[in-house]
Measured scan of single mutants.
Amino acid sequence: MEQGTVKWFNAEKGSGFIERENGDDVFVHFSAIQGDGFKSLDEGQAVTFDVEEGQRGPQAANVQKA
């Protein structure tokens, strides 16, 4: 798993970007967020995640709040 920080997340659209510790920013969709309840992330929040190849390039998967 990688570690990173939420660069921004739009709760209305359900997507945003995570700033990786090593590498380019990666797209995140709300469906990749693990946990119960409303799936959203806050700017500056620390997260851990896997990276998968999506239709438009790398994207975060199995996102967990650190």
Rank of each mutant, 00 (worst) to 15 (best):
A61W: 00
W8M: 03
N62Q: 05
G23F: 05
A61H: 10
F38C: 12
K7H: 08
A60E: 03
Q59K: 09
F17G: 01
Q55C: 15
G37S: 05
N22P: 06
D42R: 15
E53I: 14
K39I: 07
N62I: 03
F38E: 07
Q55V: 14
F9W: 15
E21Y: 10
V28Y: 04
Q59V: 11
F38Y: 11
G37W: 05
G37Y: 06
D42A: 14
H29C: 08
N22R: 10
N62Y: 01
R20F: 06
N22W: 10
V6Y: 00
Q34H: 10
E12D: 11
A61G: 08
F9G: 05
F27E: 05
F38P: 09
K39W: 06
S40C: 15
G14Q: 03
A60F: 02
F30W: 14
G37P: 06
V6L: 04
I33V: 07
F9C: 08
G16P: 01
L41H: 01
Q64Y: 08
Q59W: 09
F30L: 07
V63M: 01
F49S: 02
G35R: 00
G54D: 06
V51N: 02
G14M: 02
G54A: 07
K65P: 11
A66V: 15
E21M: 12
A11D: 08
G16M: 02
E12L: 13
G4M: 00
Q55T: 13
I18Y: 02
R56H: 13
D24E: 12
Q45V: 10
G23C: 05
F49E: 00
W8D: 06
E19L: 13
G57M: 05
I18G: 01
G44C: 10
T5D: 05
G16K: 00
K13C: 14
D42H: 15
E52N: 08
E21W: 11
K13W: 11
K39E: 05
D24V: 13
E2S: 10
F9S: 03
F9H: 05
V63F: 00
F38S: 06
G23R: 06
A32K: 07
I33L: 07
H29I: 02
K65V: 13
F9D: 06
G23A: 09
V63G: 00
R20A: 06
D50F: 14
A32T: 04
K7V: 04
E19M: 14
V28E: 05
G23D: 07
E21D: 11
G44R: 05
Q59L: 07
I33S: 04
E53S: 10
E12R: 13
S15R: 10
A61T: 13
K39F: 06
T48P: 01
V63R: 01
L41I: 05
A32W: 01
E52G: 07
G37D: 06
M1C: 12
V47M: 02
Q45I: 08
Q64W: 08
S15I: 15
E52V: 15
E53T: 11
E43H: 14
S31L: 07
V51L: 10
Q64R: 14
A61S: 11
G14P: 00
G14W: 00
G35Y: 07
W8A: 03
K13N: 10
G54M: 08
A32M: 05
V28I: 08
V47C: 04
D36F: 11
A32N: 09
D50N: 14
D42V: 15
T5P: 01
Q55D: 12
P58S: 07
M1H: 13
K65A: 11
G44A: 05
E52D: 07
E21F: 10
G14K: 01
D36N: 11
W8L: 01
G37Q: 06
A32F: 03
Q3H: 15
V6D: 06
E19W: 12
E19D: 04
G4E: 01
A66N: 12
D50K: 11
R20Q: 06
E53V: 13
A66L: 15
A32I: 01
Q64L: 08
A61Y: 09
V51S: 04
R20K: 06
R56E: 08
A32Q: 08
P58A: 09
D36T: 13
V26P: 02
H29Y: 04
Q64I: 11
I18W: 01
A46S: 11
G35A: 09
N10F: 00
V51F: 06
D42C: 15
I33F: 04
Q45P: 02
H29F: 08
F49C: 02
Q3S: 13
E52Q: 12
E53A: 11
P58I: 09
R20D: 05
A11F: 11
G23M: 08
N22H: 11
K7T: 04
K7L: 02
A66P: 07
I18A: 00
G57F: 08
S15K: 10
D50T: 14
E12S: 13
K65D: 08
G35L: 07
G16R: 00
T5R: 14
G54Q: 06
G4F: 00
K65C: 09
Q64C: 07
D36S: 12
E12M: 12
E52H: 11
T48Y: 13
R56I: 08
E12F: 12
E21V: 12
P58F: 09
T5V: 13
Q55K: 14
V47G: 00
D50A: 10
G54I: 04
M1N: 12
G14D: 03
D50Y: 15
E19H: 13
A11V: 13
Q59G: 03
N22M: 09
V28F: 12
G16I: 02
G35K: 03
F30T: 06
S40M: 09
G4T: 00
D24K: 13
A60N: 01
E53Q: 13
V6C: 07
E53K: 09
G14T: 03
N10I: 04
F17W: 11
